[in-house]
Design a protein around this nucleic acid. Structure first.
Length: 328
DNA sequence: AAAAACTGCAACCGCCAGATA
DNA sequence: CTATCTGGCGGTTGCAGTTTT
């Protein structure tokens, strides 16, 4: 077993195809059809290997190719198929007429994958990213940041210990100011840090207990309109914190068909008192948010559908801490 | 206006399995 | 049975165009 014989031959062109080459290949296949690819370049007068000709035909010249942007239906189909088939692009492409495996693979890698991550969904498993997964990611991100311009990175690297995907935070080697600054930085805004730091609690068991109840529920990727939604039954988690309950204390519908609701959110400790948060796009000051306690925020917000509902630390970007909705 | 960073995509690479000599 | 050829596949690279700094 070695390299393809066609590839080791000399004087074979590589790189982008010229219009002249395309024309030659198109003419040949139109006349003789698809057969033995290794003999195509010779008969078509091309200085390419058969493999290259095959790829060019399949991915570009084939007359039944659709081209253009993917429709919403196609996107949904890819997501569903990927959930079942994984990275079997050829099999996925077989279910999408006019699309090539290469095209779908590129679309997945450049767009769909990022979209899922933003929604808090693991693109490999298609399941919501748990805080445990997030902690693992943080480990990578954190060590990667040690060479960045973040001034505290080196000190933190010594102060943090990672254990089985979880995070153990040791405060002995850190100045209080440093700890606070670090914890407030957006990349470190993770409740696990605070829980461990303040209470000495094992963040993994703490977190898994909280997650266990949610994992037994059905995940919802969208929610009904808030106008008719019973907020007492809503629990929502994010990568960075967990909203325990959302209560609607008043609700009116204005002329532009937009519901104005006053929402109160109780959430897992993640903010310091006085820290600014973004709650549905509006700045909210943390009223009671010391780590180790439940924080509460009151804020009048305008929502026209549940997907507008978001909460994240000020300074982070909307979508950076993405949501997973759980209806129980 | 220029340089750097980012993005999308076409094409290549290496591996595998089946066919054939 | 073994070696080689070939087509097919998924992962990766590198280029060109676009956007941001």
């Amino acid at each position: 077993m070695g390299r393809h014989s066609c590839c080791v031959k000399q004087k074979l062109r590589k790189g982008l195809w010229s219009p002249e080459e395309d024309e030659k290949l198109l003419k040949y296949i139109s006349r003789f059809g698809v057969g033995c690819w290794s003999s195509v370049p010779k008969h078509a007068g091309l200085q390419r290997c058969g493999k290259s000709c095959r790829l060019r035909w399949i991915n570009y010249l084939r007359p039944d190719l659709k081209r253009g942007t993917f429709s919403q239906q196609e996107e949904d189909r890819i997501l569903n198929l990927h959930q079942v088939l994984g990275n079997r692009w050829a099999q996925i492409a077989a279910q999408l007429p006019g699309r090539t495996d290469n095209e779908i693979k590129n679309y997945w890698n450049s767009s769909l994958k990022k979209k899922l991550v933003k929604q808090g969904i693991d693109p490999n498993t298609h399941k919501p990213i748990t805080d445990k997964d997030y902690a693992k990611d943080k480990k990578i991100e954190f060590y990667a940041s040690s060479s960045s311009s973040m001034p505290m990175a080196a000190e933190l690297e010594h102060a943090l210990h990672f254990n089985n995907g979880g995070i153990m935070l040791s405060s002995s080697s850190m100045e209080p100011g440093l700890i606070r600054d670090t914890l407030l930085s957006k990349s470190m805004c993770d409740p696990l840090f605070l829980v461990e730091f303040q209470s000495g609690m094992d963040p993994i068991s703490y977190n898994s207990n909280l997650l266990a109840q949610f994992q037994q529920t059905n995940y919802e990727t969208s929610l009904p309109s808030l106008a008719s939604f019973d907020h007492h039954d809503l629990k929502m988690t994010t990568n960075s914190f967990m909203i325990n309950e959302v209560r609607e204390s008043s609700s009116t519908t204005n002329s532009s068909n937009m519901n104005t609701s006053t929402l109160s959110a109780g959430f897992q400790p993640m903010a310091f008192e006085g820290e600014m948060l973004q709650f549905n796009g509006a700045n909210v000051k943390s009223e009671q948010g010391c780590a180790g306690q439940w924080g509460h925020h009151m804020q009048e917000v305008q929502v026209n559908n549940a997907s507008d509902f978001s909460m994240y630390p000020t300074g982070s970007l909307p979508g950076e801490y993405t949501h997973v909705y759980h209806q129980i």
